[in-house]
Structures are given as C-alpha cells and as structure tokens.
Nucleic acid binder design. Structure first.
Lengths: 272, 272
DNA sequence: TCGATTTTTCGTACATGTATCGAAAGGTAC
DNA sequence: GTACCTTTCGATACATGTACGAAAAATCGA
C-alpha cells in the first residue's frame, strides 16, 4: 500500500507547478514519488523507494505542504499563513517550498483546488435555469467560506489553473445555458456574467466582514459604510435610506441577485 | 490667487487620512493649507502663508503626493509604485508620506477618488432603467482603465471611503431603482448586485489582461485559458466550445451583462 | 569505484510595507 | 523672546515574498 494510491489525487491535475519558471526547464517536478510519509525519522529509508528516478529524493511533498497549510489556517488563521511559517510547520527550509509551489499565489490556488476536490457535488436540478443557479450557489458557498479566496479568485487564468475538480461547475452552467436554448457564444456569456457576479460578491463581502471579525487590531470601529456623510440635498435617495444602509448591505442576497441575473440573461438570449 | 482655490477640491472630502491611527489623536491633519507649490526653491517664502495655523508648515501636500504617484504610474508602471519610490519622487522622507496617507491602501483609494473627481459626469438618461445602466457603465469605464484598481475596490468600506466624487453614481443607481418602483430595500439590492457584477468584471478582466500586457516579464505565454485540458467526455459542452473559449472570453460583454442583470432585477422587484 | 548528472534542499540577500523612537525644523500665540 | 504645536525625516527594526546559487543526495555510466 501507499505506493501509488496517494499520487492519484495529485497526478490528476495536469501541470500545476511546472517546477520553477525561471530556471532551466526540467519540467515535471512531481512524477510519481514514493509517498514520502516522513513521519518516522529523518529519512525512513528507501524502502521501496522511487524506481527509475534520479536526483536527490524529495523529503517533502505537495500533499504535505497543503496539509500543513490547512493546519495553519485552522489553528492560527488566514493571516498567519506565510511561507516562512508554513515551512517551519512542515519542517523544511523556506525556499524548499518553491520547488513544490511556484509562488504564494500558486499555493493558494492549489488549496482552493483541493477544496473543490473534496466538495461533494450537489445534485443539480433538471431545469436548466435552476441548474445554473444551483451551480453558482455551489461555487459561491465553496469559496465564500474562505475569506482569503479573494486573493486568488482573480489571478491570471484562475479558471485555467482550476483543475478538473471545479470544471464540472463551469460545465454545469454552460450546459444549462445551452439546454435552455443558448448558442455556445451566449452560453459562454452567461457563464462569464455569473462568474463576475459571484467573484464580485465574494470579494466585496469577504473584505467587508473579514476586517471586522479578524483584523480587529486595525480600525477599531466597524466600517462607517456609507450613509454617515451623505448630503440629503445632493443625494436624496441615499439620504432617505440613511442609517438603514448598513443593515441592508449586510443581508445575504447573493442567490436572489444571481437568479435575477440568470433570468435576465436567459431572456436576453431567448429574444436575441 | 492660489490661496483657497485649490484647497477646495481637497477639503471637500471629509476625513480621509485622519493623520495616523496610532499616535495621539490630533485629528485633522489637513485643514486648509496655503497651497505649497514647492516648485521654485527650498521654501518659496511664506508669501501669503497659512492664516491661523500653528506648527511647522508642511513642505508637501497630499496633492503633491498624488501627483507624484501619477507620474510614477505613467512613467514606470503600476508595479513600481512603492512608498519608498514615491517618497523619492516627491522628494521627501519615506515616513513623511505616512503623515498624508494612512497606508498604501489609503493612497490608492485617494488616487481613485481623485480620478472620480476629475470624471465629468455623463448625462444620465431619463429612463430609470437606462440610468442605472449608464451609471454602471460610467463606473466601470472609470475603474477598468486602471488595472491596479483591483487592489482597492474590495477594501473594507471602499464605498464608505469613496468621497462625494463617486457618490452620485450610487445615488444614480439607487434613484433609478426607486423611480422604477422599487422599495428602498430593493433599490439597495439593485445597487449591490450591480456593484458586485461590476467589481467582479473589473477584477477578473484586469488581472487577465494586465498580466499579459504589463507583467510580460513573467509567464511568457498568455494564459492557457481553459479549453486546453478539457475532457470532452466528462465536459461535453466545454469540449464543444473547445478552442473558441479564449476568443469568446476576451469579448467585452460588460454592458450586455449589466443590462441583463438590471432587467432581471427590475422584473424581480416589480413582481415581488 | 569514481565522476557526471539530476533533483532537491536551503542559506543568504534584497526590496518592500509597516512601525517606533526621537530629534530637529519652522511656524504661530502670548 | 518664550512656549507651544505641527511637520519632517533619519535610524532602526521586523516580517514578508522571492531571486540566486551552492551544497547535498541520490542514480547512472564508465
């Protein structure tokens, strides 16, 4: 046991981490390695060690790094997840991490990918419209729990780096649109709008709550959140809302807004 | 001339920069100061200097700092805008900046505020629906040109820190919704959805293009952008789109999506 | 067995944002 | 002039991401 079983969940993803971008191009830094374990000694001996692999045997693996990151996240919180601390947690030099993740961003992307891996896919409704909404809600719920997801969601080609684990979500939305009668162009449009809306909601909400709950060391008071310095003459509608803005802005209206968006998009596509 | 004329655009904003958060609380570090000029010598002489102000007269002003930031942005690019470099550019010590901006984030917020200040407000259509769309497009266009806006858009209470200069946008959207028949609650909902969608679009797009156009020193190739590693069996719809994804994803569909969103929201509100 | 090769590890160094401390400078108010 | 007040800004410190390159540890070819 333990020879190939674990590597399955890793090799599924294609090339995330392509070693380092700068150096020579010895791509593929993670061919199957004899699962490093590393729990029972300095080097647990090459019992059944890597067959046909040259080079210094790795002492750590990406799986270990991600596990350490999870430990830090749960124990110390998001803002304590630094590369140095993670290296200490895993018991390895700081720069060693860079052989398993391209950079900090890559680490976070991999964490999110892992989360999507573990997510049990919900049953998607048969109705195309509802399927789109359900997929959006699933993506939203998965990401919204991690305030730091904001730091990664918008990275270049995030969707490209998202493994198969989250691709079914994209597929679900596109398929829902097509099943509803959209052309492929329109379906992509639908997906992108849903994605923008979802990302925006998560990003804005995550920061707004996060500051208050976590980083209370800064800015003692909660955000004044508009409405404190509005001139009712120049902005009558805002003035009319007045102090109710914070309360209204705190409501969770993601699903309602998503439904409106999808309704509008599908109507647009149908009549176009 | 030059005594109060310039300070008008600065004193309009209420309290952004409340000196430093840590020290004593001598709030209000920027009462009107006699516009510092500082272009013609070590100290251009107190000709008509500040009336009724005690303490050492400031050698630099927030306006100068923002101007220097602009210079760096245009000359060296966004990633070169660091506090040390900005201090050198303006010709002051690094820590002096902290007397005018709370931190880096605050600097960026002020830059955006300034941009909104300079924005000539477009004529808003009379039709409520079109007014909402026009306001959204105006906000989008203003922010989308600055890729680094992404770093600020989601900061805690961004809307709260946005000066009057951008508040008319919020007002326009809320007013459009109310004029269409929405309750205040629904109007806030409309605004938030539009805001989420807009922020999401800007953030995702900015990063996607930005990497390629500006930071071409990293990652030589453009983003693989999905579609390269899709399994047509598991994701038939994505497989059908195939290589067309990059092209479709590159289109500018912000306005179309916004219109769909607004349509859906207003329909939702009307029938609710 | 010895050197070449390959891969991993990791110490060192640098730029950055942020922060404290403290001292000087340059004004106004009395 | 003296007292105060505000701004400037250097020295210093710390944590961070990460570029660079050398050392270590394995296999392979001779």
């Amino acid at each position: 046991m333990g020879l190939v079983s674990r590597s399955s969940s890793e090799s599924s993803r294609a090339d995330p981490q392509r070693a380092d971008p700068q150096r020579a191009d010895p791509q593929r830094a993670d061919p199957q390695r004899a699962d490093p374990q590393r729990a029972d000694g300095p080097h647990s001996g090459p019992s059944g060690s890597g067959r046909g692999r040259t080079g210094r045997p790795p002492r750590t693996s990406r799986a270990e790094i991600l596990a350490g990151a999870h430990r830090i996240l749960e124990r110390d919180g998001w803002e304590k997840l630094t590369l140095r601390r993670l290296a200490t947690e895993v018991g390895v030099g700081t720069m060693t991490l860079y052989h398993h993740v391209r950079d900090r961003e890559d680490l976070l992307v991999q964490l999110i990918n892992e989360r999507f891996d573990r997510l049990t896919r919900p049953e998607l409704p048969a109705d195309p419209r509802e399927r789109i909404v359900a997929a959006g809600v699933a993506a939203h719920d998965t990401l919204a729990a991690w305030p730091w997801a904001a730091e990664v969601l918008t990275t270049d080609g995030f969707l490209a780096r998202v493994g198969d684990s989250a691709l079914w979500l994209v597929e679900a939305i596109v398929a829902g649109a097509v099943d509803h009668g959209c052309t492929p162009e329109q379906a992509v449009h639908v997906f992108r709008c849903v994605w923008y809306y979802t990302v925006g909601e998560i990003l804005v909400r995550a920061r707004s709550d996060g500051r208050v709950s976590r980083r209370d060391d800064l800015f003692s008071g909660p955000a004044p959140a508009l409405s404190s310095h509005v001139d009712p003459d120049r902005h009558p509608r805002l003035g009319a809302i007045g102090d109710r803005w914070p309360e209204l802005a705190a409501r969770d209206t993601y699903a309602a807004g998503l439904r409106a968006l999808v309704d509008g998009l599908l109507a647009q596509a149908g009549s176009g």
